[in-house]
Amino acid sequence: MVRMTVLASGSRGNTAILSSSGTSILIDAGISCRETLRRMLRAGEEPSKLTAIVITHEHQDHVSGLGVLARKLKIPVYITGHTHQEWQRWVRGPASKQSELYDDDDKAYLDRCEHFRAGEKFQIGDIEILPFTIPHDAIDPVGFVFRTEGLKIGMATDLGYMPANIKMHLRGCDALILESNHDVEMLRGGPYPWSVKQRVMSRVGHLSNDTLADFFSTDYDGGAAFLVLAHLSEANNHPELARQAAERALGGRLNLIQNRLVLASQTEPMEAIRF
């Protein structure tokens, strides 16, 4: 049995769990350790069974709970070298002189840390993971393709647009977790300063409902059982707008067996998708 649950999704924190029969990995740690454990229990996931944490990029809404969570659960963290360095810089703050400290004094110390590179597969238990570069304004951001028990699951959130290489990686997936961040009109007329609006709409910002819909109507192969819309903006989107844009784009391909739409939430765990 393979299960996928998004525990939190949005600019106030992102974290998800993928579990196979023998392995369970946490993808990002963007909410506090306590809240992560609480939501795991609500979603029926056992924290002691987590095998590892994998990190997409260093933005605070993806790593703010990482330090405590990794130490508490005593599990390894898989992260790119550049993202690791940038996370350490964030945690230590600007004024630190950590090179003079012993490991135990280092606020960014992780017991077990494995570096991976975009484009190079690695394995955690019985889950094979292929990280791929995504266009986002972080130091070395990645999306993932997970393969386990004959299933392929693609995950790409926090990306400014959908380049050809990502479309290729997402072909043939049994489940897709994709960003549907904002409604362009809501963003334009919304409360953010113009500089932030420009950043969100840029090619290293976030994917709009329309851009995702365009992917669904023109490039998506239509074969996934589940489509999870994730990282919805609370200020510049509405779940119904995101759902309607996706439904329109998918048209007649929506049915009870394929392309079931699920919306990930900021405030509560999503009902697990199961294979």
Partner: peptide, 20 residues
């Protein structure tokens, strides 16, 4: 963890201090 840091979290970026 906090004892290792002598209970000083002032050097941690504000956004990362939540758990502490």
């Amino acid at each position: 963890i906090l004892a290792g840091w002598r209970y000083d979290i002032s050097g941690i970026a504000a956004e990362m201090r939540g758990d502490y």
